[in-house]
Design a binder for these strands. Structure first.
Lengths: 335, 335
DNA sequence: TTGTAGGCGTTATCAA
DNA sequence: TTGATAACGCCTACAA
């Protein structure tokens, strides 16, 4: 391992000068700088960031806690975070939690262990340290890019899921649908609750009833959407449209409808949520709500940088816009 | 920051004993251990892993270099890597390269900078240090979980893409297809080349010609599959089946066929590759080749652990099995 | 503009 | 079984 001392010897200067040459080159004489650069090149020197981190008390790592990376929706957030992190000289550590509380807390503890400088939460669960607001200890830098129960005072970036879901229903109502079913997400998750609430809000606004019999709960997976749709089809109540709490379930629902020989959108209209890339290529292409996933990740990382710069900065909340994307899976209600 | 010295003072022992209590508790007297544990709990101590890493000369991080995390195929590999990494006490650093050589080399350099102990390559490009085999320097721990030109002597885990693609063609030939088109991946990528070669091999085995006019090149995205299929449809040569080099392109192709009013599999059969979750829910569900993505990631990380344990361990190659999954997008050739 | 020297918080070697 | 102490490689007052 060639270290800063080797460079200093080789260039005939002190280690302090080498260090300066690397961090603020403007304060070292050009000729000296040149000698040092030469030595670095000749010895193929690479500064030990572990040592630098130890000294500076920062690792340069940001943990991103996600339940699973297999979800393309989540993956897009991570991409956004990485974009900004890299620019700012931070690395992204992946913390896959499987929605396990203990595991998530382990990741949070890595901040205390100096393995990371902060954590961005994309999870449906919350770290113990965040929920135990009563203890006087100051929280490590945490930014949320997910829905969570209101009242927690941490920086966050989110979408207005309630309003967005209501907009979907308005779109269906405008098409003449009055029997609108819903495939909701797991009710333990705030995001699922918000989207369900939005659907109900939209129904109210349209003067329509929200019937329990027209609601099926899934868990945001293709499979669960497929099953939920089968359940709705088997149910007694007729319907001409379905709002799904995410695109995956909507795509699963489309498969179930196709299997049952029900035409979309001729007999039943289907709407999703998230605008996954796959949604534009389904059969038929899916009407959905575009969620600025990559941008959400970017803003979350920006919020993290702010927190890191000034820990006393008051937590802020950023709400990003959504956009209804009408494709061919929704159409006029059958006569 | 409470450190090991605080614990030592609080427990009335030396820092050496505290360190031992944490790393090999069996060599310290039970009563002493108890005192130390108490102190750790009371002071809420968390060892500084940066310092430990500096001393031990290891960071405990593994970089995973991926072109993009948005690709669900890639994401699955990462999941597999994380599974094993976590078990072994390693963290996964995400290195998104956008297939940029400079960026990839930056990630590789992080090993020299001690920010990571090794790198797992899921990329289509190769680090400069790997291709410049002539320089005598020993390579940092790198494991490949992707296709790359033969002749490079680094540990790797892969699938037999050639044989797998040939099996797909055999399946189509058995169904009576003789005019088989292909939507290939970008030819710069080894994986794309292998899958194309497999298709040609399959055609030869079935005694069928491989016609240039029946080949369209895509870039592994939905969009490119869609466009490639449009091109094939517009082409002069008729065909009754299409082999796509991955599921994304196959799903894009299905969309194009649907739009053109061509029945699948009635008029044209479509086969994909990878078995994405979405493939089982397309319309119609996609015949494809299951690639053990998560397991590939797991094996790659295992190979990495082996390398880390014994750097002189000879590079090994693991070939994982594939499996044809027949769904409804392929059927008998029309009469 | 440059050099000296004292940490940063561990681990590991060697004695005791 | 425990303790004293020297690294690990870097950064940053402070002094020159």
């Amino acid at each position: 391992m060639t270290n800063i001392r080797d460079i200093a010897d080789h260039a005939g200067v002190s280690i302090a000068t080498v260090s300066r040459a690397l961090s603020k080159p403007e304060v070292v004489r050009p000729e000296t700088l040149e000698k040092i650069k030469l030595a670095i090149a000749e010895l193929d020197y690479q500064p030990n960031m572990l040592a630098a981190g130890l000294r500076r008390q920062r690792s340069g790592n940001i943990i991103v806690a996600v339940p699973s990376i297999l979800n393309p929706f989540t993956a897009a957030f991570v991409q956004g975070i990485e974009n900004i992190a890299r620019e700012a000289g931070y690395r992204v550590l992946l913390g896959i939690t499987d929605s396990d509380q203990t595991l998530l807390d382990t990741y949070v503890n890595m901040i205390a262990g100096k393995q990371a400088d902060g954590l961005i939460l994309l999870d449906v669960i919350l770290p113990t340290i965040v929920t135990q607001a009563d203890n006087g200890v100051k929280r490590p830098p945490i930014v949320a890019a997910c829905e969570y129960p209101p009242g927690l005072n941490i920086p966050r970036v989110r979408q207005d899921n309630v309003e967005a879901a209501a907009v979907v229903v308005a779109h269906l109502a405008r098409l003449g649908h009055s029997q609108i079913a819903m495939i909701s997400g797991p009710e333990q998750q705030q995001m699922a609750r918000d989207r369900s609430a939005g659907v109900r809000l939209g129904l109210r606004r349209a003067g329509l009833a929200c019937e329990e019999a027209l609601t099926a709960e899934g868990n945001f997976t293709l499979e669960s959407g497929y099953r939920a749709m089968q359940a709705l089809i088997a149910g007694a109540r007729p319907f001409t449209a379905v709002c799904c709490a995410n695109d995956e379930m909507a795509l699963g629902a489309l498969a179930a409808l196709r299997e049952a020989g029900i035409d979309v959108p001729g007999q039943v209209s289907v709407a999703g949520f998230d605008d996954l890339r796959f949604a534009a290529y389904s059969s038929p292409p899916l009407t959905t709500v575009e969620v600025p996933t990559v941008e959400t990740g970017e803003r979350a990382m920006q919020l993290m940088l702010d927190q890191l710069r000034d820990p006393d900065d008051a937590p802020r909340e950023i709400v990003l816009p959504h956009r209804l994307i009408v494709r061919q899976s929704t159409g006029p209600a059958p006569a």
